[in-house]
Design a protein around this nucleic acid. Structure first.
Lengths: 254, 254
DNA sequence: CGAACTATTGAACTAGGTCAAACCCAGTGG
DNA sequence: CCACTGGGTTTGACCTAGTTCAATAGTTCG
């Protein structure tokens, strides 16, 4: 209904030109300290659904689904970036996370989505019927277990984020964000982080204002901790002094 | 091991005198806007484990388990209050939530707990082997589905909390907290909220300082929005003007 | 080239934090 | 029964991290 009208449906053969590094499962927003997430088997398990899957292309800044929508589908990102948003009535916004290629969107829903999913840039994704996933889980305890694990991983990330939002300073937040993005980037992200999202998105993700994000970035640049430039899809940050950045991020325990 | 040494183990017949309002499942930290959580069936499902369950009494301010501990058990609170804590190396702390009678603790773990559970007051709980729960879930898709639903509920609450921590003002946070506690209180909590936790706990839950919590409470009292007093277990707040409080809390959408 | 964005920088302001003192009990011991 | 002690709570005075407002500088697109 609502959703399909915004998509360019390519049918199940419309594979995009970009081939993301990994199409295996990896829980969204998982931080570095989390034990390595399961991959291989689930990819296999989900393969059982590929017959019913549809591939979609969505352009920049479109809505995939809205908070409150009946959760009919979930998605896997083939290429691109998605932001998960929680909106307040008065316009204040929080970006609960960014999802990258290979990650899953909208799997953590009950009856209805509780977050809005929007594309940060032109994005390609595979769509699965949630009902089919649920059915698969009912049939196969292994899949069910993986789903639970996935949820647990997201919950863990969410807890981490609460500490970040509730107790960390602005620079700690930004440092943490840069390191997280670097860790999540496709292999070989040796100090290079591409930030496809704008300053406002980052700000809304970190509970800051765009101005503060800017200022902190300039500050880090002046201190020689990072370098900035522009990549094909969005700004690029080069981490020049990982030690300094890590010191700033100063993780809770570990 | 670590855990059992701090407990007064009553064995499985050592039922406590207090009989909490509901022993059914209810996802922890679920906010009012969330659709009513499933109850009856899960209580039945878990009953299958009651043979292996142990009832424990833990006094005030003890640790039930620590972040990083191998997650051998999970618990259901019979009576009392538990706080879930995330600690930073430098002492900064975040309380991700408070768990009340009837709610479950430590079910959302992967291999290890990612939160520390501490008693806010003298608390009685039932302990289940996680492995048994997992096994039950593997055997029974219904249980598995409930577990997923439970996790989704917590995730939802976590997202709500991120908005709260990242975008809401101090007074909005406090108002929201009071209303949430009132909604979660055992039936008939007509405007009366018992707060068994100290100001510091509330502050760490809301990303504020104890001083700010205090000031805001006094402020609300002076405005005639609430009244304060002391109950048997902890401070008590009476909500005199629910409208004003709700206006302050001003929920996102809805 | 100009419109419309987004990013950057500056200056002034404030919500909350910090520090420190006063209060208010619940125990406890004389 | 009452003073004493030790913990949390309140209150006050002051301060700063981060916001707000506003102006400038790139960028993208038509």
């Amino acid at each position: 209904m609502y959703v399909s009208s915004q998509f360019t449906d390519q049918g199940q053969n419309g594979r995009p030109g970009t081939s993301p590094a990994t199409l295996g499962w990896s829980p969204a927003g998982l931080s570095r300290s989390t034990p390595p997430a399961p991959r291989r088997d689930e990819a296999l398990a989900l393969a059982a659904l590929d017959g019913a899957a549809t591939t979609l292309c969505v352009e920049k800044d479109r809505t995939i689904f809205v908070e409150g929508d009946r959760a009919e589908f979930c998605y896997r990102i083939l290429g691109g970036t998605v932001r998960m948003v929680k909106q307040m009535a008065d316009g204040r916004r929080h970006v609960t996370g960014f999802l990258l290629a290979g990650e899953l969107v909208g799997l953590d829903a009950m009856d209805r989505h509780d977050l809005t999913a929007e594309t940060v840039m032109s994005t390609t994704l595979t769509r699965y019927k949630r009902a089919a996933v649920e059915a698969l889980a009912d049939r196969d305890p292994i899949v069910a277990r993986r789903l639970r694990l996935l949820a647990a991983g997201e919950l863990r990330a969410a807890h981490e984020r609460m500490v970040l939002l509730g107790r960390r300073t602005a620079s700690e937040r930004l440092a943490h964000f840069l390191l997280e993005m670097e860790a999540r980037a496709p292999r070989g992200g040796c100090g290079r982080v591409v930030l496809p999202m704008g300053r406002a998105d980052i700000a809304d993700h970190l509970g800051l204002t765009p101005e503060t994000v800017c200022r902190l970035l300039t500050c880090l640049r002046h201190e020689g901790t990072i370098g900035t430039g522009r990549a094909v899809d969005g700004a690029e940050v080069t981490i020049l002094d990982p030690r300094a950045l890590a010191a700033l991020a100063s993780d809770p325990r570990h």
